[in-house]
Design a protein around this nucleic acid. Sequence first.
DNA 1: AGCACGCCGACT
DNA 2: GTCGGCGTGCTC
Length: 797
Amino acid sequence: MIAQVIVDVAAKQTDRIFEYHIPQALDDVEVGSRVVVPFGRRKVQGFVVGLSEKSSFKGKLKDLLLVIDEMPPLTPELVELSKTLSDQIFAYRITLLQTMLPRVMRANYRKILTPIDEKVKNLPLFQGEPVDLNSVSDLDKIVLIKKLLKQNQAKIEYLVENKAKKKVEAQYNLTQKLAFYQEIVKKVPTNAKKQVALLNDIIENFDQYPKKSTDLKKLELSTSVLKTATQKGWLEKQEVETYRDPLKDFEPEKNARKITLNEDQQHALDKIAGSIKNKQAKTYLLEGITGSGKTEVYLHAIQETLNDGRNALMLVPEISLTPQMVRQVKQRFGSSVAVLHSALSEGERYDEWRRIRRGQARVVVGARSAIFAPLKNIGLVVIDEEHESSYKQEDTPRYHARNVALWRSKFHNCPLVLGSATPSLSSRARAQKGVYELLFLKHRANKKSLPEVEIVDLKKIQFAGGQFDLSVNLVEAIQEKIARHEQVILMLNRRGFAAFMLCRACGFVLKCPNCDISLTYHKDTKDMQCHYCGHKEPIPKRCPNCQSQEIRFLGTGTQKIQEELNELIPQAKILRMDVDTTRRKGSYKRILDSFGNHEADILLGTQMIAKGLDFPNVTLVGVINADTGLQMPDYNAAEKTFDLLTQVSGRAGRAQKTGHVMIQTYNPEHYAIELAKTQNYEAFYRKEMQVRHEGNYPPFFFTTLISVASKNEQTAAKFAFAVKRQLMAKLHAPTIILGPTPSSIAKIKNQYFYQILVKYKHEPNLNPILHQLQDKAQEVQKTGLNVYIDNEPERII
DNA sequence: AGCACGCCGACT
DNA sequence: GTCGGCGTGCTC
């Protein structure tokens, strides 16, 4: 038998199948097995993607060396998915296979130099031990090593190591009958208090044994006591494999309330449940405002799936994978839930993943990468907040979890539920066309009225303090709430790095004449540029609209706002939450717990505070500057702004108290802001579709972004123009090729970026051209030129 | 990717 | 002569 293997070498020349003979001893190998194979002179890890009787290879096949895991880590489904996906998103297949697995399963390669000749064994280089070549950098040593190899006095061994460590824990088994312990406890010297305590525990809780060392911790014994007990033959120590359980802090709720669904919810559930039963690969778009009870529909649908004997996969944005969220699911489905998200340690992640792979978890909840969970027999896939851009991975492999979900839904013949208060335009448009089925949740399940939203026009109001960030209105509102012992959430929309020109007098924002997108201030080149068409103009000294000299280039940070608040409202306790304060593991939860316990009055953060948080005591939500998002040079800037404002408004007044929202803006008349005031998604959808139609943007056109990066700006630009010429030669109208234009952040990590945006409706020539480009990309990488291809980009830097 | 082979210039 | 620089080609 022959195994078809994808080897762990990410390169275009090796991005194909290599065949290996399967030796007798390894005939348990399966599709999806992780193996070690000889590859040239080396040994590398690989994945078996097929088995065959005959080989098409002319030369002599080598043998597989090792099958690493007892159970193949990849299911045949995932192996197949890797093939389809690698073609779609221009990633090497091995990269995808690796992405599907926990990081600890990636191979660690080592080269070990071992002496052959007796004479060289005692050289200072070896000192009796083999040498790890990865840690040798000394030039003299390298010379010596080469000499030894040449004279055949030493050899190199190639090792493939597995980083995955199973956690083992000591377990103590009883060796005797109960009566024995009852006898022995009398004979133990009275000063051996801890031994007595241990024996008493054994006698009292005899049937709870064997106990693990964590369980014995409660007795406050030192390890020496356990050691003596083992030596005396009372106990027997055994190493057992355990799972690191990230959910151990969550107690399942004893008597979970039965929640009855309202009419809308029930209708949605019936539809979804019908598709679960009939094994229909149908996509539903569940549209409902905050508080309309989408989660409850998901949970009921998951229950239906389980009742039907199948398993469920639910994705939530990383940001809302909060303890609150996890608790909710855990309470409903108990130990059959597995969670996968980035806050887990690598070990925890590996253990959760193994529980899923072994079929011990029936419900998987996780962030983006959980879409690759090795769950079998899937009966339902849910994507909550489907419009979230975090479902798109921003570096290779640039997959979109929603696309992968569609594929898996087809594979398993099961429904896919996309839920959102503000669906992505593309999903909503598909629902319009009947590709997806639209399910509406019209009413807030908790019957609460929507919060009152007030737009604060920054052109017309007074600022508090010396800075132009906080209006008097907002500061007064905050003070009022604090005086009433209520809490406030303040959001600084996006961490704006791309500064834009704004007129303080009339609110004018300088835009590109061709693209209806604001021009970005380039400090390095001292001009204003459009990131779509490359238009440039000088930095204005006066406002082009009203000739006022009061123009500013904006960009502000959470830290600055915190300082201002400290000055203006000294009595307020402020918690800041942004990437800087949440970098450490668990700090996210710590900040939220602290705020939940009312240890602070104000939670100030970036958009990470906009989603899913539920603090009943919060009665005011303030958006410090709604415009920062609008000024981003992305075609979907308005959509992102509308989403964020709608989401963050939902944080106010979650319980009995009525919520109040204040949105500060220089553009109160912009449709994204105006419509966010009434949270009218449908109206926004219609307006934005019109804008997209006029601009030839998604969902009317597909898009692909090609980025070229180099340390040398000329090199990047030259290559980008060459790519453009090639595209122009082979693609035809109505396909639109924009650029190349320099990226808004002209230099990232000392690399200059140029990008080309291809917009197309139907362009069969594009995929082959881009594959050629991908091959070319590896070739030119040696010259320091990096080329990235992003299918359906969410962001255009 | 990484490793070997191979062909040229500059040293003990 | 030989060491080592990097261009070229291959890995089942």
